[in-house]
Simulated assay, not measured.
Amino acid sequence: MSTNPYHSLLQHLANCPDSADIEALFRALLTEKEQQEIANRIRIFDLLARGVTQREISEQLGVGIATVSRGAKAMQAHDVSALLATHRESA
């Protein structure tokens, strides 16, 4: 097990056999607000990948335009497009 706390978290998530276990771990680790913020970030990534404008995303999700802009910058900086495409295809 890694001594880096973040890598340790990733290892725990990778070891979860199914989504119910991941959900239980997230419920234990994160507040409801933190869970919602992560879910919104993923939704922002997905909507941006589908070509929805930042303003429309802000309105759809009920979050500020700055939140969407930060999500767009993070998506661009970390190039998660391929990961999102893989997720959409398997969903």
Score class of each variant (00 low, 15 high):
Glu89Lys: 10
Thr86Pro: 02
Arg41Met: 10
Ser19Glu: 11
Ile57Ala: 12
Leu48Ser: 14
Thr31Gly: 14
Lys73Asp: 00
Val63Asn: 06
Glu89Asp: 09
Leu30Gly: 08
Asp46Ala: 14
Leu83Asp: 09
Arg50Met: 13
Ala20Tyr: 10
Ile22Ser: 12
Ser8Asp: 07
Arg50Glu: 15
Gly64Leu: 04
Arg43Phe: 05
Ala28Asp: 11
Leu47Val: 03
Ala82Gln: 08
Ser81Glu: 08
Thr31Ala: 09
Gln60Met: 09
Ala24Pro: 02
Glu32Arg: 07
Ala49Arg: 04
Glu59Tyr: 04
Asn15Trp: 00
Asn4Pro: 00
Gln35Pro: 02
Ala82Gly: 05
Glu32Met: 09
Glu56Pro: 04
Leu9Thr: 08
Glu59Ser: 07
Leu47Met: 15
Arg50Gly: 10
Ile57Cys: 13
Ile22Asn: 04
His87Thr: 00
Val63Pro: 03
Glu32Thr: 11
His12Tyr: 03
Ser81Gly: 07
Ile38His: 12
Val52Asn: 06
Ile22Gly: 10
Met75Gln: 10
Asp79Pro: 00
Met1Val: 01
Ala28Lys: 11
Gln11His: 08
Ala77Thr: 01
Thr53Lys: 12
His12Thr: 04
Glu59Arg: 07
Arg43Trp: 04
Ile38Gln: 12
Ala14Tyr: 09
Leu47His: 13
Ser2Phe: 01
Leu30Ile: 03
Lys33Arg: 12
Thr31Glu: 06
Gln76Asn: 09
Phe26Gly: 11
Gly51Tyr: 04
Glu89Phe: 09
Glu59Ala: 11
Leu25Met: 15
Lys33Glu: 13
Asp79Glu: 10
